[in-house]
């Protein structure tokens, strides 16, 4: 009886608080700085916005083309699009207005990241020819290229800029991890031995002291961003880890799963207590979790998982 009661409580705790429906598959999520708006990049190329409190639809902003990729860190108030014509277009996250267009030569840039202070935009692309070597590129706020650097073989699997904008970190499909100084392109560290398999997602802690990454081996890795030593590992996700996010106070970590059979298989979202490393909640998701995001007050967790829904949980 007691077991049944505990199970019931656990199920109730795991039930999502509410959902928002979208007209197209939701790919990535970001809250506005004031937390009142949730923006989602969708598979039809539109950016949709909802009122977080009411759950009501606000508007859909058409983007420059349908297959564009977007990076939307909440802190920057921007989203970036890698357009088919090779240019990168920066939009205001709230209004959708085009703010800047960076025309590029060469192969299209994939995997974009923007710093919270809007001073750095990073992306990577394949070098010319038959090679699968990748080049990392970083532009300043005026759209001027600050540096390019070799970024491994096979492409960039994960990309993140530290909260203060000083460090760019990238994982490549060859399983190596690199960190650069965003000011001058200095390679701060090439990490070749900590990982045997690739990372799917990277995120810095809000204080910037730690870089976390998760991927194929279902483990969350934490690197100290001063020494670049591997500091901790969290194990317990039943699936590969496709996304992760820290709460604004850095105390909670959310990780989203990716079943290795296929994207369209049920997975879990785990909430971790960062200090103890313990899993504090397990939440269900129908498919690969492409994005998790905490509201600026840290009370809400939103997730996108391969369908036309945004799922919310009250986590505090």
């Amino acid at each position: 009886m007691r077991c049944a009661l505990v199970f019931l409580v656990a199920v109730m705790a795991a039930a999502q608080d509410r959902t928002i429906s979208s007209d197209a598959e939701v790919r990535s999520l970001a809250f506005s700085k004031d937390g009142n708006t949730l923006a989602a990049a969708c598979s039809d190329g539109k950016l949709r916005q909802w009122d977080v409190r009411a759950g009501s639809f606000r508007k859909a902003i058409p983007r420059v083309n349908e297959e564009a990729l977007a990076a939307m860190p909440s802190g920057s108030g921007l989203f970036a699009v890698s357009a088919k014509d090779g240019s990168i277009v920066l939009h205001d996250l709230e209004t959708g207005a085009e703010l800047q267009r960076i025309a590029l030569a060469g192969r299209r840039v994939r995997e974009l990241a923007i710093s919270n202070d809007r001073q750095s935009l990073a992306g990577s692309s394949r070098v010319a020819g038959n090679s699968r070597e990748e080049t990392m590129r970083l532009w300043d706020a005026s759209g001027k290229e600050r540096f390019t650097a070799p970024a491994g073989i096979g492409g960039t699997s994960a990309l993140a800029i530290s909260p203060d904008g000083s460090i760019l970190a990238a994982g490549s499909w060859d399983t190596n991890l690199r960190a650069w100084n965003t000011r001058n392109g200095e390679l701060l560290r090439l990490i070749e031995d900590d990982l045997l398999v690739a990372l799917f997602y990277l995120a810095f802690t809000p204080d910037g002291k730690t870089l976390a990454g998760g991927g194929v081996d279902r483990t969350v890795y934490f690197w100290d961003t001063k020494t670049w030593k591997l500091a901790r590992k969290f194990s317990g996700q039943p699936e590969m880890i496709s996304s992760l996010a820290f709460s604004p106070d850095g105390k909670l970590l959310a990780t989203g799963g990716f079943n290795d059979i296929a994207e369209k298989h049920p997975v879990s979202i785990l909430l971790w207590d960062v200090v103890s490393g313990k899993i504090v909640r397990t939440l269900p998701a129908p498919h690969m979790v492409s994005s998790v995001a905490f509201s600026p007050d840290g009370k809400l967790l939103a997730a996108a998982s391969g369908d036309k829904m945004v799922r919310f949980w009250t986590v505090r």
Binding site: R132, I153, G154, W173, D174, T175, G215, V216
Partner: peptide, 12 residues
């Protein structure tokens, strides 16, 4: 000709 590396390469 080259092809994509894919997500499942493992070192070692």
């Amino acid at each position: 000709p080259s092809e994509v590396l894919g997500p499942f390469f493992k070192k070692g």
